[in-house]
Simulated scan of single mutants.
Amino acid sequence: MRSGWKSLIAASAACVLMAASAACSSGDDRSQPDHGSTTKPQTSAAAALLEPATPAQIVDRFVQAGLPATDLHDVTDSECPEAHCMSAAQTAETTVMKFDHPRDTMMYYATHRGAFAIADIVISFSGDVDGDARKAYERQTTLAVR
């Protein structure tokens, strides 16, 4: 029985030593580029905040989730010059705006009570959207930009 424990302890110690040895000799020099890596290169903090989802894609997400999105139309030309957004889509229930800079997103959000903002997206709700529906729209927007 004792020899079984000794073997188990010796095998465990060998595994720990091999793992430590591999970690130490992996050549992980962060100053050297990893040409075989499939990870994306690091970007600036501002660029990392911007999401690729368009307002129309976010509205599509609403529809897929079973939320009302009546009469979708592009309102970029009418809304964005004043709002400083890069694109916008509107339904009878929501207006979804995408901004090209986090500062513009937060400035618009700060001046529009009742809006919801995440990353570079701001959602404004019509007066007909109740609290539970609003939470559902917010949840779907959050999922769309992650």
Results as ranks from 00 to 15, higher is better:
Trp5Lys: 05
Lys6Pro: 01
Lys6Asn: 06
Ser7Gln: 02
Leu8Cys: 08
Ala10Glu: 03
Ala10Cys: 13
Ala10His: 12
Ala11Gln: 02
Ser12Ile: 13
Ala13Met: 06
Ala14Thr: 09
Ala20Trp: 01
Ala23Met: 08
Ala23Asp: 09
Cys24Met: 02
Cys24Thr: 07
Asp28Ala: 15
Asp29Asn: 15
Ser31Lys: 10
Gln32Lys: 12
His35Val: 13
Gly36Glu: 11
Gly36Pro: 00
Gly36Ser: 04
Thr38Cys: 02
Thr39Leu: 13
Thr39Val: 12
Pro41Gly: 06
Pro41Cys: 12
Pro41Gln: 15
Gln42Glu: 04
Ala46Phe: 06
Ala46Gln: 02
Ala47His: 05
Ala47Trp: 00
Ala48Ser: 13
Leu49Met: 04
Leu49Ala: 03
Ala53His: 12
Pro55Met: 11
Ala56Glu: 05
Val59Met: 08
Val59Glu: 03
Asp60Arg: 05
Gly66Gln: 09
Pro68Ser: 10
Leu72Ala: 07
Asp74Lys: 09
Thr76Tyr: 12
Asp77Asn: 05
Glu79Arg: 13
Cys80His: 10
Pro81Thr: 14
Ala83Gly: 01
His84Pro: 00
Met86Ile: 14
Ala88Ile: 00
Ala89Ser: 14
Thr91Cys: 05
Thr94Asp: 00
Thr95His: 03
Val96Gly: 00
Met97Trp: 08
Met97Ala: 14
Asp100Glu: 10
Arg103His: 02
Asp104Gly: 04
